[in-house]
Every structure is written in structure tokens, then in C-alpha cells.
Amino acid sequence: MLQAEDEPMAAEADAAILAASVSDPQAFAAVFERHFTAIHRWLHRRVGAPLAEDLAAETFTRAFDRRDRFDARISQDARPWLFGIAANLVHDHRRSELRRLRALARAERWEAVIESDPSAGAVARADAAALGPAVAAALADLRAPERDALLLVAWAGLDYEEVARATGVPIGTVRSRLHRARGRLRAALGESEERDR
């Protein structure tokens, strides 16, 4: 039975699985099964459903091709490495992402793009629908490194250290990027609320 992707034993085994997959390519399937859902979910939120499937597949294709370069001294967990590959692929599709965010900012019916969650309260969904276009516009206006750091934390659930590994920058840089991104989002959303009043 496979362990859940967030269980510590699963993360500890990633490095060993990747090392074994160099001589036994079939072993890589365990890393794919363990992390595909999280990578796909994050990509779906970043680039939308049609592109997420392709980018998730490309993420694991590149990871498979580079599995001999995984550095277990840095981390035993493959998630930051995989999210780093996925983030680089998103950079390759930056223009379409920005176009999508700008289109969502202009959308009259933001509710249509919000995932349906029957367990969430109606007030929370209404708030999200009201703020959706402003959030999309604010995300589109962020610098790419700030947006990446913010969405790796918010949508992928990575901690600061994992974001640092995924993006290849020091943890202090991650903290700075997140601080700037949050400040810019607060300012943009504050301005949006003032306009709405």
C-alpha cells in the first residue's frame, strides 16, 4: 500500500527510490504515483486544466530524464525538486498565464472559474467570487519570482525552505519575495475594495 504523499516516511524514501531508478527505471513509478497529484493540482491552479495535464507529464518526463542528478544531500524529499521543475515549465508558459490572469480579472462571472466545494460555506464562496477578479489582476501584476514564491506556498503548500529549494534561491530571498508579494496583494485588494465602495 502506498503512503499518503505528505507522510514523513514517503518523503524520506524519495531519494532512495530515485537512486534505485537510475539502474531500475521502473522504480521511478513510485515517485510518480506519490507526487503526481500534488504537482498536477498546483499546475492546474497556475495554468488551468488544459495545460496542467501536459505540464505535469512534462515535469515527470524531465524528472525521469534527470533522476541521476537528484541531490539527496540537499533533501530526501523529491517534492521541492519536482515543484522546481514544474515552476520552470510554468516560466516557459508565462505569457499565456499572464493573459489568463488578465482575462479572469475582466471576467464578469468569476464564480464559473472557482472550484465547487459543497463543504465550504456560501459566504466564503461569495467572498471569493467577489474578490476573484481583483486577486487575478493583482497576481498578474506581481513580478514572476514573487508570484512563484507566493503560489508555491499558497497552492502547493510548500514551506519557505522547500520554496527555496524549488526555486534555487536562499531562504532569505524567499522571505523577501513573499513579503513583497503579500504587500502588493494587500495594496491591490485594498484599492479594489475602496473602488467597490
Rank of each mutant, 00 (worst) to 15 (best):
R45C: 08
G172F: 06
R94P: 02
F64C: 08
A72D: 07
W110D: 04
A166K: 07
E191P: 04
F32V: 08
V113W: 08
S119L: 15
H93E: 14
P25Y: 07
A19G: 04
L139P: 00
P25K: 10
E191D: 14
L178K: 04
A137L: 11
E12V: 07
E58V: 02
A156E: 01
A86V: 03
P118R: 07
R195C: 04
R41F: 06
V163R: 06
L142E: 00
A156W: 01
A16P: 04
T61C: 12
S116P: 10
V90D: 00
V174P: 00
L139F: 01
A57F: 07
A57R: 12
H44Q: 15
E12P: 02
D14A: 00
A156F: 02
A134H: 03
P8K: 11
L2V: 10
E5F: 13
E115G: 10
S21I: 03
E7P: 01
G183A: 04
A87S: 15
L152I: 09
E7Y: 08
P133L: 02
N88K: 14
P80Q: 03
R34W: 03
H91M: 11
E193P: 01
P145Q: 05
E194I: 12
D54H: 14
E108T: 12
L151W: 01
R45K: 13
R177D: 02
T59R: 04
A105R: 05
R102F: 05
L178S: 02
A166I: 03
Q26R: 14
S176K: 13
A188L: 08
R165P: 04
A16R: 13
I85P: 03
